[in-house]
């Protein structure tokens, strides 16, 4: 009897291939959304406005009722974080800078690609597609990224709801007791060139 055809391995899926090729060329965009962060029983909310232009990034995090505004900028030279009381921190890497100043662990390097529905460059532990050939779930650099919702923007379907968690694991893959880190991202607005 004919067995059901195996789902095409991701790297053979033509729709996914075409989608990746098209999205990879999009290096200038702006998104606006909301972020909820959690590490064990600590966390917070922020609205996020993220503007990317090639190597240059500007991320504005604002807390509820307009409080606690933080601006993180990054370019090829390095990263700078400013707060609403005009304090400034600088470092080479934006993610480490954000962590040092706020204690938030946000995988910025990965997010830069994941928000477009793309894996970041480098090894991918696991990748699942939905029926339309879009990323459904991705395991990369220790993070588990679930793409819960897409919305149409011009030529592209782009993620509008993502759930990103990191469970530190022992080498054998069993979860270590360390806290679970969680980032929930809802993207309401995309601006593409």
């Amino acid at each position: 009897c004919a067995t059901a055809p195996l789902p095409p391995a991701a790297d053979l899926d033509p729709v996914w291939q075409a989608r990746q090729a098209a999205l990879v060329s999009v290096t200038a965009w702006q998104l606006r959304g909301r972020l909820a962060l959690r590490a064990a029983d600590q966390g917070g909310h922020a609205t996020l406005s993220w503007k990317r232009d090639g190597e240059r990034h500007r991320m504005d995090f604002t807390g509820p009722l307009g409080r606690g505004h933080l601006r993180l900028t990054q370019d090829s030279q390095g990263a700078e974080l400013r707060d609403a009381d005009r304090r400034v921190w600088r470092a080479a890497d934006a993610g480490r800078l954000l962590y040092r100043a706020t204690g938030w662990i946000v995988p910025l390097d990965g997010l830069n690609y994941w928000v477009l529905g793309l894996p970041a460059p480098g090894p991918v532990a696991n990748l699942q597609l939905d029926e339309q050939g879009r990323l459904k779930r991705l395991l990369q650099s220790g993070w588990d990224i679930q793409f819960l919702e897409y919305t149409r923007h011009g030529a592209f379907d782009l993620p509008s709801k993502m759930y990103i968690t990191r469970q530190d694991r022992h080498a054998d893959g069993n979860p270590a007791e360390g806290e679970i880190l969680e980032v929930r991202l809802s993207i309401e607005q995309w601006t593409l060139p």
Binding site: A36, S186, E188
Partner: peptide
């Protein structure tokens, strides 16, 4: 609008509940 969020100061604590993101701080 455009999303549901509840911010409540009950006299002692400040609660922020983002309904869409299902998290309370």
């Amino acid at each position: 609008k455009p999303y549901k969020q509840r911010i409540v100061a009950d006299g002692e604590r400040l609660w922020v509940y983002d309904v869409g993101l299902q998290q309370v701080s």
